[in-house]
Each structure stands twice: as structure tokens, then as C-alpha cells.
Amino acid sequence: MTEYKLVVVGAGGVGKSALTIQLIQNHFVDEYDPTIEDSYRKQVVIDGETCLLDILDTAGQEEYSAMRDQYMRTGEGFLCVFAINNTKSFEDIHHYREQIKRVKDSEDVPMVLVGNKCDLPSRTVDTKQAQDLARSYGIPFIETSAKTRQGVDDAFYTLVREIRKHKEKMSKDGKKKKKKSKTKCVIM
């Protein structure tokens, strides 16, 4: 069974824990209790493949930012979460993405942009803004509501699919490099 290491990042209060708990335990946590770091595991079937999701729910508070490099190193894919009623959390996505790329030393890291709290009427981040940002990053965008469960499975499952595509691409690139290195030079 394939294991996928997913990391949920975003500013404090955007609903990272609520999304994760909704996926794992099928219930909505409405009281806000700032996370330092929590880890969850769940076995699911995605596109006919049974897999184990190892999900790291991270601290959004700035005082825990020193811990970010460590979990970013171990993560295979990242859910970059903002709240649709919090423009600052949307603007912060850029910083999370840049930090992930720096730590992973790669421009090509599996990510999904997630606009959470889409059940709320007080939207300050337009869907088109988020779609445009995701398009500019070359990553999928999904709106979710941890409260109603809308888009929750889709967000995590899409990230797994992005990781699969990335692994497939990397193995193809690896095979191309191996083929090239088999060419021999004969000096007579």
C-alpha cells in the first residue's frame, strides 16, 4: 500500500485542523484551538488504489514558523489553505509557496490551493482571484467548507493525484537520464 505524506499549511484560523478532522473523523470542530502540530493517518481508496494518507496539520501562528522547514522537508505534497473571508490569509499563500519551493529546492512541488469556509456569506476573496492565482502557479484550486464537508475529500484526493503525477514524471525523467548515460565512448 502506497503511503502519501501530505502537509496542510496556511495562516492561523483558516480551518486547516477543521478540514483535516472532517476528512479523518467526519465531524466539524467549530471551536478554535490553535494547533502546534498534529499528525493523522487514514486509509482510503483513490482511483481504485488503496493508500495510506499521513497528514500533518501544522501551526499557522507566526511564533511556530521555525518548525516549518522541518515538516516541509518531509512532506510530499501540500494543501495551501486560505479562508475566503480573510484576504490576508490569501496573500500569505505566496509566502508559504515560496518557502516550500526553497526548502524542497524545487520549482515543481505537488500543491493544491484550497479556499476554505465557502459556506460563509462574508467572502472577501473572489473565486476568480483564487483561480487566477492557482493557474499562475500551475496547481489545482478547490473551494471547501469544513463545516458542510463540501470539497473536503476532493481537496485531499486531488493532492494525492498531483503527487502521483509528480512521481510518474520524475521516474520518466530518471529513465531518460539513465538511457543517456548508457551511451559509451570508444577510443581507438
Rank of each mutant, 00 (worst) to 15 (best):
36 I>Y: 04
32 Y>V: 04
26 N>H: 12
29 V>G: 05
60 G>D: 04
21 I>F: 07
56 L>H: 13
41 R>W: 05
5 K>N: 11
4 Y>W: 08
55 I>H: 05
56 L>N: 12
42 K>F: 11
55 I>M: 14
17 S>K: 00
26 N>Q: 12
54 D>T: 15
9 V>W: 03
48 G>V: 07
58 T>Y: 02
18 A>W: 03
63 E>K: 05
55 I>P: 03
47 D>Q: 09
44 V>K: 13
46 I>D: 12
13 G>I: 10
8 V>Y: 01
13 G>Q: 11
53 L>N: 11
14 V>Y: 06
31 E>Y: 07
53 L>E: 06
14 V>H: 10
44 V>S: 12
29 V>I: 11
29 V>K: 02
62 E>G: 07
10 G>L: 01
9 V>H: 04
2 T>Y: 11
62 E>W: 05
41 R>F: 05
34 P>R: 02
38 D>Y: 04
16 K>R: 04
17 S>V: 00
55 I>N: 08
37 E>F: 15
39 S>M: 07
56 L>E: 14
22 Q>S: 13
34 P>N: 00
24 I>E: 05
3 E>N: 14
42 K>Q: 10
21 I>C: 08
28 F>G: 01
32 Y>C: 05
48 G>D: 10
44 V>L: 14
27 H>V: 15
60 G>C: 04
20 T>Q: 02
46 I>V: 13
9 V>E: 00
53 L>K: 04
29 V>N: 06
33 D>E: 05
21 I>A: 07
6 L>Y: 05
40 Y>K: 00
9 V>I: 13
47 D>N: 10
32 Y>M: 03
12 G>W: 09
32 Y>D: 04
29 V>L: 09
43 Q>D: 12
48 G>E: 11
61 Q>E: 14
23 L>N: 15
56 L>F: 07
57 D>Y: 02
13 G>P: 14
40 Y>I: 01
12 G>S: 12
18 A>T: 10
15 G>F: 03
33 D>Y: 03
16 K>T: 04
38 D>H: 03
17 S>G: 03
41 R>N: 08
62 E>Q: 08
6 L>T: 07
38 D>P: 03
30 D>L: 09
61 Q>D: 15
59 A>C: 04
57 D>P: 02
42 K>W: 07
28 F>E: 01
17 S>R: 03
63 E>Y: 05
54 D>W: 06
3 E>V: 11
24 I>P: 01
18 A>R: 01
56 L>V: 15
62 E>D: 13
49 E>W: 06
21 I>Y: 15
37 E>V: 15
33 D>V: 03
55 I>R: 01
62 E>S: 08
45 V>I: 11
21 I>N: 06
26 N>T: 09
10 G>V: 01
20 T>F: 01
47 D>W: 05
14 V>E: 10
7 V>C: 15
32 Y>H: 13
31 E>W: 12
4 Y>A: 11
9 V>M: 12
23 L>D: 05
14 V>K: 07
30 D>F: 07
55 I>T: 12
19 L>D: 12
8 V>K: 02
15 G>I: 01
40 Y>V: 02
12 G>I: 06
44 V>P: 09
22 Q>H: 08
35 T>K: 01
16 K>C: 06
39 S>V: 05
62 E>T: 08
48 G>H: 11
20 T>A: 09
54 D>C: 09
11 A>E: 11
56 L>R: 14
31 E>T: 06
21 I>K: 01
63 E>V: 05
50 T>F: 08
17 S>A: 00
31 E>L: 06
26 N>I: 06
7 V>T: 13
9 V>F: 08
17 S>N: 01
18 A>D: 06
7 V>D: 00
30 D>I: 07
60 G>T: 03
23 L>A: 14
28 F>S: 03
59 A>W: 01
49 E>H: 12
27 H>P: 03
5 K>Q: 07
20 T>K: 04
21 I>Q: 06
9 V>S: 06
46 I>L: 10
55 I>S: 06
60 G>E: 03
11 A>I: 14
18 A>V: 09
19 L>A: 15
4 Y>D: 13
54 D>L: 07
13 G>R: 10
4 Y>G: 14
7 V>L: 05
44 V>C: 14
54 D>K: 15
57 D>F: 02
50 T>V: 10
31 E>I: 08
39 S>Y: 05
54 D>F: 06
7 V>G: 06
35 T>N: 01
57 D>Q: 00
34 P>M: 04
22 Q>F: 05
43 Q>E: 13
29 V>D: 09
38 D>A: 05
59 A>H: 02
30 D>Q: 11
19 L>G: 13
9 V>A: 08
27 H>Y: 15
23 L>Q: 15
49 E>I: 08
4 Y>N: 10
28 F>H: 05
14 V>A: 13
37 E>L: 15
7 V>K: 07
53 L>I: 14
15 G>D: 00
48 G>C: 06
26 N>K: 15
39 S>L: 05
29 V>M: 12
7 V>R: 15
21 I>W: 07
5 K>H: 07
52 L>Q: 14
36 I>D: 00
6 L>H: 02
23 L>M: 13
38 D>C: 03
39 S>P: 03
15 G>M: 04
38 D>R: 03
13 G>C: 12
55 I>Y: 05
30 D>N: 10
35 T>E: 00
45 V>M: 10
61 Q>P: 07
63 E>A: 05
43 Q>I: 08
55 I>F: 14
35 T>V: 01
61 Q>W: 04
44 V>R: 13
5 K>Y: 03
34 P>G: 02
24 I>S: 06
20 T>V: 10
43 Q>C: 09
11 A>T: 09
48 G>I: 06
24 I>G: 07
44 V>Y: 08
23 L>C: 13
21 I>R: 04
29 V>H: 12
30 D>H: 09
39 S>C: 10
48 G>N: 10
60 G>N: 03
52 L>C: 15
37 E>A: 15
47 D>E: 10
63 E>D: 10
39 S>A: 10
63 E>L: 04
64 Y>V: 05
51 C>W: 12
41 R>C: 08
52 L>Y: 15
36 I>K: 00
16 K>S: 11
52 L>D: 14
19 L>V: 13
62 E>A: 08
33 D>N: 04
42 K>P: 07
35 T>I: 00
12 G>C: 10
52 L>A: 15
44 V>T: 11
5 K>F: 03
35 T>L: 02
33 D>S: 02
61 Q>G: 09
58 T>R: 03
60 G>S: 05
64 Y>P: 04
2 T>C: 12
39 S>R: 13
49 E>A: 11
56 L>M: 08
38 D>E: 02
5 K>G: 08
12 G>A: 14
51 C>K: 12
56 L>C: 15
24 I>V: 08
23 L>I: 09
35 T>C: 00
57 D>T: 01
4 Y>T: 13
63 E>T: 06
56 L>A: 08
45 V>G: 13
48 G>F: 06
34 P>S: 04
45 V>K: 14
33 D>T: 03
43 Q>H: 11
25 Q>A: 15
24 I>K: 14
41 R>G: 08
49 E>K: 10
51 C>Q: 11
35 T>M: 04
24 I>Q: 11
5 K>S: 08
46 I>C: 11
64 Y>T: 05
8 V>Q: 03
13 G>V: 11
54 D>S: 15
16 K>N: 06
11 A>G: 11
11 A>K: 06
36 I>S: 00
48 G>A: 09
56 L>T: 15
7 V>I: 09
11 A>D: 09
44 V>F: 08
3 E>K: 14
23 L>E: 15
6 L>M: 09
35 T>F: 01
61 Q>K: 10
19 L>K: 11
41 R>Y: 05
20 T>L: 07
18 A>F: 00
25 Q>C: 15
62 E>H: 07
18 A>I: 07
13 G>S: 11
15 G>T: 00
35 T>Y: 00
11 A>Q: 11
25 Q>G: 15
14 V>Q: 11
33 D>A: 02
3 E>I: 09
32 Y>P: 04
44 V>N: 13
62 E>N: 08
5 K>M: 03
17 S>F: 01
19 L>Q: 13
43 Q>P: 13
6 L>K: 01
18 A>Y: 01
19 L>S: 14
4 Y>E: 08
2 T>F: 12
20 T>M: 05
31 E>A: 07
61 Q>S: 15
51 C>H: 14
27 H>W: 15
46 I>E: 08
42 K>A: 08
42 K>H: 11
49 E>G: 09
47 D>C: 07
44 V>M: 11
57 D>E: 04
45 V>N: 11
32 Y>I: 03
2 T>A: 13
64 Y>S: 05
10 G>R: 03
55 I>K: 01
62 E>L: 06
58 T>W: 03
11 A>P: 10
8 V>W: 00
49 E>Y: 08
55 I>G: 03
29 V>F: 14
37 E>C: 15
36 I>G: 02
50 T>N: 12
52 L>H: 13
24 I>F: 15
62 E>M: 06
47 D>P: 08
63 E>N: 07
